[in-house]
Structures are given as C-alpha cells and as structure tokens.
Amino acid sequence: MKHGVCIVECFDKSDPGSEGRVLKEIFNLMQIESVLVRVKSIENLFEQIAESEMKYVHVSTHGAETDSRTFGGWWTHKGTGTRKWVQQQDIDLSCTAIVSTACRSGTTSFGKYLVDTMGCKYYIGPTGCPNFYNAALFSHLYYHKLFKTRRTVQAAFYSYEASYKNPHGFKMFRKTAA
C-alpha cells in the first residue's frame, strides 16, 4: 500500500466548502501523496475505501442521524451506509486507518464494527457534530502529527487528544487481536 491518503468525499450543495479540497491542498503542502475521490452513492463510497491503494482513508461526508439523534450511517445522495446495510456487504477494509469527520460517526458500535469485522486496523470519528472548520482543523492537526511528528496512528491521535480540547469527542478504535 502507498503511504498516503485517499480522501473519499460526498458533500451537499449547501455545505460551506469542500473538506476534501482543503485536505488535498494541505497534503500537497506537506508533500504527502493523496487522491480526492468524489462519490454520490453509498455503494461507491465503500467501493472506493475498499479499492484504495493508500494506507489511510479519510471519509468526508455527513452523518445521517436517527430519530433519536444518534448516528444512523454515512450519508450520500443515493443512500445511507447504515450498520445493517454495511453488514450485508462483503467488503474487506485492509487500509491501515479510516478517519471520518461525519457527525456522530465515532459511535462505539460503528467504530468497533469497522475494525473488528471489516478489517480496518484503526478507525477515528467524532461522537459530536463538528462544524466544517472544526473538522478541517482536527484533520490538519491529526495528519500533521501522523506524517510529520508522531508517525503512528495511535501516537498521532493520543498527541492530539492530550494537546487539544477535542470538543467533538473524536474517538479512536483499534482492531483487537483475533
């Protein structure tokens, strides 16, 4: 796998900007290999994650909320990646880490499912609802730590968590030993 980031983005026309474009520019400035892929369907979103040649995947989309205001899945124009939908797919996520900035996507059930069942080594997502600028700031700080100072997913995340207020409750999930 290539040492870089695949940014998978699905944004709504009402969004204040493209988090993917911001990240792509940050990676260019840091001289980190990256690719920005825009998707419209949940099938394509998971397809792009599964087929990525990059060690790291960044999912930039919205989190669909249930009636009880909990995470219902990753949103796209053509469907939502609910846990039930994801469980019915035959997808192997062999990337090292997935970072999501979708609202409430850092729920324990979703995070553990991605790492323990679908094969991703690490998953990071917020338990709250970050604004566009909060998501971009978290991502910039985390990826700077990952690629420039700390060099491992765990060290980069724990450094972020220890150094900043983490107002949106970003959480990291790690694959448990089989």
Rank of each mutant, 00 (worst) to 15 (best):
G111Q: 08
Y142F: 15
P16V: 10
K112M: 10
A177E: 14
P16Y: 11
S94T: 15
S52K: 00
K148V: 13
G128F: 08
G20S: 06
F147I: 03
Q48G: 00
G119S: 05
E25Y: 13
D90F: 06
Y142C: 01
F147P: 10
V99G: 04
D12L: 05
R104D: 02
A178T: 14
G79S: 03
L23C: 15
T82V: 11
G106D: 00
Y123C: 01
I32R: 01
S139C: 14
A102M: 04
Q48D: 08
I26W: 14
K2G: 00
T176N: 05
I49F: 01
S18D: 04
H58A: 02
E51R: 04
I91G: 05
H58R: 03
T80H: 02
D67H: 08
T96A: 06
A178F: 13
L23Q: 15
Q89F: 01
G81Y: 10
S18R: 03
C103A: 12
F138I: 07
P167W: 08
F11G: 01
L36W: 13
V153C: 08
H62I: 01
F110I: 05
D92Q: 14
N134M: 09
V39W: 13
A64V: 09
T117R: 12
N166Q: 15
I26G: 10
E33T: 13
F71I: 04
F46V: 13
V35P: 00
G111D: 05
V8G: 08
Y122V: 02
I124F: 04
T101A: 04
S159F: 13
G72C: 04
H58I: 02
L137V: 06
Q154R: 14
E43T: 08
A155E: 15
H3E: 12
R150K: 15
E33G: 13
P126S: 03
N131K: 10
V59L: 14
E33K: 13
K145L: 15
G63L: 03
S34H: 09
T76N: 02
D92T: 13
V86L: 15
A177K: 10
K145Y: 15
S41L: 07
D67Y: 10
A177F: 09
